[in-house]
């Protein structure tokens, strides 16, 4: 009798018993009535093939309820829905506006931990279908985010090239640098472009500019590589790259959410 320990099951069983008893009682009552009682009353004038009809008054409760529903129906048509300007879309818009306001004020100055936690939530819903729950890109089905944002990530990009972010400079060919040169540049870029610029960076400067800022929107600003700002840029642009296509999340995520996703992704490669 394990199932009886559930109170919903107990309630259902009780209800079933009550319904059964009531049915037997009511049916019995009417069957007895049909057997013994004779009908009385005034017959209406018309009859059909000898079958007549009594002139019965409507039961009061039934009649008032019927009248009530007619009056309520008229009120509903005229003063209630939909003529008084209520709409489901309006309610939705209000709800969203209210939520957006609350969201923005609540998380305007969110700290690192909060952003990371928020980012993880958004990541699991929006990003994990392609990049995988662990961010490893699921055997090359998408970019491996566990190295992205580090020197290894830059090395990957230099080795394989990059395309499809939608900048006027277009595709970055694979293998522009190799060996030690690539390594030096990778460490320099992943380190936030601080310290002395390696001479090999000249190869990158052709498109990204000597300061790496992308020459006013001609190419991606790689001085922000490895920061949430860069992730935000990729989320806004989408990417039609060598592995596959990533859609743009512009408008689907708020700037705070994008920053949160960036914070979370970086925690994957930086091991924070």
């Amino acid at each position: 009798m394990n199932w009886l320990s559930d109170n919903v099951n107990q309630l259902a069983l009780l209800g079933a018993a009550v319904i059964l008893i009531l049915t037997i009682y009511v049916a019995g009552k009417y069957i007895r009535q049909m057997k013994t009682e004779k009908s009385t009353g005034v017959l209406a004038e018309e009859n059909w093939d000898g079958i007549g009809e009594y002139k019965n008054e409507l039961p009061a409760g039934w009649a008032y309820t019927f009248l009530g529903t007619i009056i309520w129906g008229m009120w509903y048509m005229i003063a209630g829905y939909p003529v008084d300007g209520y709409s489901q879309i309006g309610e939705y818009n209000d709800e969203v506006a209210q939520h957006t306001k609350m969201f923005e004020s609540k998380w305007a100055n969110a700290d690192h931990e909060t952003l990371k936690a928020m980012g993880e939530g958004v990541y699991l819903v929006q990003c994990s279908p392609c990049h995988g729950i662990a961010g490893d890109g699921m055997d090359g089905k998408a970019a491996d985010l566990t190295v992205w944002g580090s020197a290894d990530g830059v090395l990957e990009t230099i080795k394989k090239g990059s395309k499809g972010l939608g900048f006027p400079m277009g595709e970055m060919p694979a293998g522009l640098l190799s060996g030690d040169a690539a390594k030096k540049v990778a460490e320099y870029v992943a380190g936030g472009m601080k310290g002395e610029q390696p001479a090999e960076f000249a190869t990158c400067a052709g498109c990204h500019g000597p300061d790496g800022k992308g020459m006013g929107g001609m190419a991606p600003d790689i001085s922000t590589y490895g920061s949430p700002d860069f992730v935000q840029m990729v989320l806004d642009h989408g990417k039609k790259g060598f592995i596959g296509t990533m859609v743009s999340f512009k408008g689907r995520l708020t700037p705070i959410q994008e920053k949160a996703v960036g914070t979370y992704i970086l925690s994957l490669s930086h091991g924070e």
């Binding site: 929006q126 392609c130 089905k141 296509t245 859609v247």
Partner: peptide, 11 residues
């Protein structure tokens, strides 16, 4: 179509 792509559907 706004948030999944050809390669994703294929996989």
């Amino acid at each position: 179509g706004e948030y999944r792509t050809t390669d994703w559907h294929e996989n």
